[in-house]
Design a protein around this nucleic acid. Sequence first.
DNA 1: CGCGATACCGAGCACTCGGTAGGTTTGTTA
DNA 2: TAACAAACCTACCGAGTGCTCGGTATCGCG
Lengths: 204, 204
Amino acid sequence: MTTSTDRRRGYAAGDARRERILHIATQEFAEHGYRGTSLARVAERAGLSQPGLLHHFRTKEQLLVAVLELRDRRDMERFFDGDDADGGLDVLAALVRVVEHNSRTPELVRLFVVLTSEAVTADHPARAWARARYVRLRTWVADALRRAADAGDLRADLDADATAARIIAIMDGLQTQWLLDQDGIDMPALFRAHVDDLMQTLRA
Amino acid sequence: MTTSTDRRRGYAAGDARRERILHIATQEFAEHGYRGTSLARVAERAGLSQPGLLHHFRTKEQLLVAVLELRDRRDMERFFDGDDADGGLDVLAALVRVVEHNSRTPELVRLFVVLTSEAVTADHPARAWARARYVRLRTWVADALRRAADAGDLRADLDADATAARIIAIMDGLQTQWLLDQDGIDMPALFRAHVDDLMQTLRA
DNA sequence: CGCGATACCGAGCACTCGGTAGGTTTGTTA
DNA sequence: TAACAAACCTACCGAGTGCTCGGTATCGCG
């Protein structure tokens, strides 16, 4: 089961196994999507039987949720590590660093691109997650932009919500193009150029 | 089989049936992706048996290819209809119109978003198509931008390839956000704002 | 009319899917 | 050490997958 908040003591072997399962499931979901991933294959790679896997995660959907929760948690930790607090304009620099980091971990980028887009199909278990994630991201970037405007770093009349949506859109769009042609697309450079142009337009 | 260039005479019933199958398959692929779509369901909705469907399209993959070819053809016709020829700066206005049209046909947008992203997974039959489509789109927008620069409408030092990649990225990124929250995201307005900013930055 | 191509259908193939039932072994704790 | 939960296993299920085989009925042309 393993929701994000359970404190179990003992049974270290089980915990280790769950961790390994999540690691492998992350790879499989990234490479084949949710529908294209089979529990049997995940189980085989994790070194147990398929019912053995279902002992730890009762359904395929619960496995997916656990993978997404773990990744969200990891990403949050990573992001609010180097520079935390409010930030304001720093958020743009932080996003550039995120894109640079992403360009070194294509498998995790693939996970988000594949699952997010798969989630726009009917009755997909990750739909609510994808939607909530976008709301969270947009709100978060928009708030930072507003703080930057209040601090006088950006024009007071900027449309923070629209700008946030556009920044996130370009991150996502570049990821797709980059995954299909990693040699032909310089994702970090393209994103940095966009942020530079944005600064030029929005500077107070 | 029905490749894009075959001129068969007679057998109107078969042609009509194929057209209907393609129409339904387009909907199914858009709603469930390639992996989530079943031939049996497409056949049922088209009013024939599953082997009957496979008589017209020998494999699931061939059905997908036929759907993609038809859509590419339709889109090209639509786009090069109102204003054709070179265009230069007109291309940006044309792209704005495309986005506005897209906002009225969410199912077709979904088709591209779902299949393109599914295509970044391993061994996906639409991978080559998605990659080639991006190369084509980028080249096409970049060429138009270069013509606009040559004509003196845009700065001579603009990076046409990078700008083209970014424009397409934002179109795609906005589509994903919009599909997940059609009421919360004003896709045409956001794209138009981006193009306006771009013009301001790149005007000669 | 004759003849080949087209347009199907029913049955079934070999396989995979997520999930269940019921059991044994291993580990932890009182 | 007794009690119990966790960590598996084998065996299996029903449903669904894309696809094939072998047929038949119909269509269109010479």
